[in-house]
């Protein structure tokens, strides 16, 4: 019997097909839809109208503002809650930290809708529901995305070489100085990765804002959904999607998410996106 043999090129074929079918063509379609309008006879023509419309329409700009603000606040709270947790878990030296870590991560394994519905009930009981839509939305998003912040932070803090902290101490640095000048900069890859992992989904995850904000909060994700299903305007929907994509691209660029993994000392492996 002849042995089956695949060259490296041949092994690439399924992945290339996948990329073309599910990444390249859809992106192209979105791009085409975003920059075209439908004529009366059904033919498409090139147009900047959607683009101009988005940046001149105050309600759309407001939605953008709300999305960015909610994402920003969510990311901020995730970071200040997750950092101490990750720090304690990673540096405690306790043998069974993974048990604790798992407890923090475990909600991720529960059905997302179930979690949010349960949270809605809880907020209802304490009387928040319907009163503080923004607060509820942020609470829901922080609750939801916290594990995505803890994990990369935990990873980068755990990789932190204990002897570096000792070296700083040895050179005369107290605990605060050591934290600010050694621990914090060296955990930066984890922080950036955590920020991207939380910031991006909070821009689009409208299930949380719908359920907990009593449908009073519209974020970009919700707006895209409305344009596609309610208004049946795929052109505007695609344009918003493209704008969102550019925003995310810019945040990644700013946070250095595209930097090459030049030296292995920076623990960029924590970057999961």
């Amino acid at each position: 019997m002849k042995k089956l043999y695949f060259s490296r090129k041949q092994l690439c074929i399924p992945y290339s097909v996948f990329l073309v079918l599910f990444v390249f063509i859809p992106m192209l379609l979105i791009l085409v839809y975003a920059f075209t309008q439908e004529a009366a006879d059904g033919s498409l023509y090139f147009s900047f109208d959607n683009f101009l419309n988005f940046f001149t329409n105050s309600s759309k700009l407001q939605t953008l503002g709300v999305s960015v603000t909610v994402s920003f606040i969510t990311t901020f709270f995730c970071l200040i809650i997750a950092y101490p947790v990750a720090y304690i878990l990673a540096r405690s030296g306790w043998k069974h930290t993974y048990v604790l870590l798992m407890l923090f991560i475990m909600p991720m394994w529960l059905n997302f809708v179930l979690r949010i519905t349960a949270l809605r009930e809880l907020l209802n009981i304490i009387g928040f529901l319907g009163k503080y839509d923004y607060v509820n939305t942020v609470i829901g998003m922080v609750y939801d995305f916290l594990p995505f912040m803890i994990l990369p932070l935990y990873n980068s803090l755990q990789k932190l070489d204990q002897s570096l902290l000792e070296a700083a101490n040895d050179l005369g640095a107290g605990d605060v100085h050591t934290f600010l000048h050694v621990t914090l900069p060296l955990s930066m890859p984890g922080i950036l990765s955590g920020i991207t992992m939380v910031f991006m989904p909070s821009m689009t995850n409208y299930v949380v804002s719908e359920t907990l904000g009593n449908s009073n909060i519209t974020i970009l994700g919700k707006m895209i959904e409305e344009y596609f299903s309610t208004y049946d305007d795929m052109h505007m929907g695609s344009m918003i999607a493209i704008i969102l994509l550019v925003i995310i691209f810019l945040t990644m660029l700013l946070s250095g998410g595209f930097k090459e993994n030049a030296d292995e000392t920076s623990s960029r492996g924590a970057n999961l996106w």
Partner: peptide
Amino acid sequence: PNKRPVNTVFQRYALFPH
């Protein structure tokens, strides 16, 4: 350690990579 007039050369150098 930060209050001692002593400095250490570590086994694996422990230089700050950043």
